[in-house]
Design a binder for these strands. Structure first.
Lengths: 206, 206
DNA sequence: CTGAATATGTGAAATATATCACGATTGGTC
DNA sequence: GACCAATCGTGATATATTTCACATATTCAG
């Protein structure tokens, strides 16, 4: 069965927690209760999630940390290499380019594009910025599936349409727009304004 | 009744959609069906959300766009000025400093801190970077409620503890750590690795 | 080897969230 | 002014998610 978004996010949290924990002091096994305690989740939830990706624990012992990490990485597809293009090299796009954590998850940015002629040809974080006109040919030629969208909000839908037309299958959307795409294309929104709403509301209630 | 996170996020999407729509062509009213169509949500959901913040529509007409935007801003607390401190002026911290959209939501970064002596005293995006040692006095003196955390992962819990001890009520966490804080302190996580999990999984399934 | 303690695994119950169905209300038309 | 079509408001229903309860499995002590 296809895993839901909430499950994927929890799996990611387990993985991160275990990576960080084992980095400081090596441990062989861990119980669902320990994970639940640290992440403020119900222990049953942890066991169900683990069960969903085929992990089995041992009574009175728990789960092999190694196995858990491995299973999560496999299920998520972090072993598979995912080439991606990044579009829009502004402040945020630039910051993402230098983010060192992507390769750990199999993501590699292979080309970056911008519509500003003043930027094209220049180099940023080891990437030569290409003209937006070469976007479609590039994607087609290299069979790119994933685009990271960091453009101004006015052009994001236009670019998204172009991406879809050449076969992009997932858009990581850092622009504050609700993109319209066909149902087989995944859009993952990363608008920080959503987070801001939760914060502002909380502060107001004090 | 206290609004749930999912409701807040939808309200934010309505608000953004209406802002963008009215910017291009001014309209007076809108129906729940129109919003639902654009945002791929059930129309009933839209009406329920509006009802939850006290909005009433008119049969055969819909809702006053002006009223909706206004109600959302009020409920969210965007009218209230929220001073915040930003900690950790790396790539991401720097990008956030220059983000122009915060003031629209009542958020203003009033001071920035970093533990690196090479950075303190320097200026970035109009802010003088202060030593991390002056963090606690500053927060206490100005009664700051919100901290934006962009430090390396190794120190994020330590900094969080300090923030809590001096009375911070919300932490916007851009570090990949599950912070442990008292229940009255809100932590909003903004780890991009969560988004990555959804994307990688989707691409793997193709 | 036996019993006590502590885990897991999972069906059942509870809770939360989203959708449906439909009466009530409004605006336009003839 | 009366009827029709479109829209809201909301209780009822359906679905999804989380939590509970407990049988089953494993370890360790004596």
């Amino acid at each position: 069965m296809r895993l839901k978004r909430v499950v994927l996010e929890r799996l990611m949290r387990y993985h991160r927690f275990l990576s960080q924990t084992t980095a400081s002091k090596p441990i062989q096994t861990i119980t669902s209760a320990q994970i639940a305690e640290a992440l403020d989740i119900d222990p049953t939830q942890v066991r169900k999630d683990f069960g969903a990706i085929g992990l089995v624990g041992i009574g009175r012992v728990g789960y092999q940390v190694e196995d858990v990490c491995c299973a999560v990485r496999t299920v998520m597809g972090f072993d598979k290499e995912n080439p991606a293009v990044l579009i829009g090299v502004g402040q945020l796009g630039g910051a993402l380019l230098t983010y060192p954590g992507f390769e750990k998850y199999g993501l590699s940015i292979t080309a970056v594009f911008d519509s500003d002629p003043a930027k094209t040809g220049r180099s940023k974080a080891g990437h030569t910025i290409r003209s937006i006109r070469s976007l479609k040919p590039y994607i087609r030629k290299h069979g790119i599936m994933l685009a990271i969208l960091c453009t101004p909000v006015e052009v994001s839908q236009t670019i998204a349409d172009r991406l879809v037309s050449v076969g992009i299958k997932a858009i990581w959307n850092f622009t504050p727009t609700d993109l319209a795409v066909p149902p087989d294309v995944l859009v993952r929104d990363e608008h920080i304004s959503l987070g801001l709403s939760e914060i502002a509301y909380h502060l107001k209630k004090l």
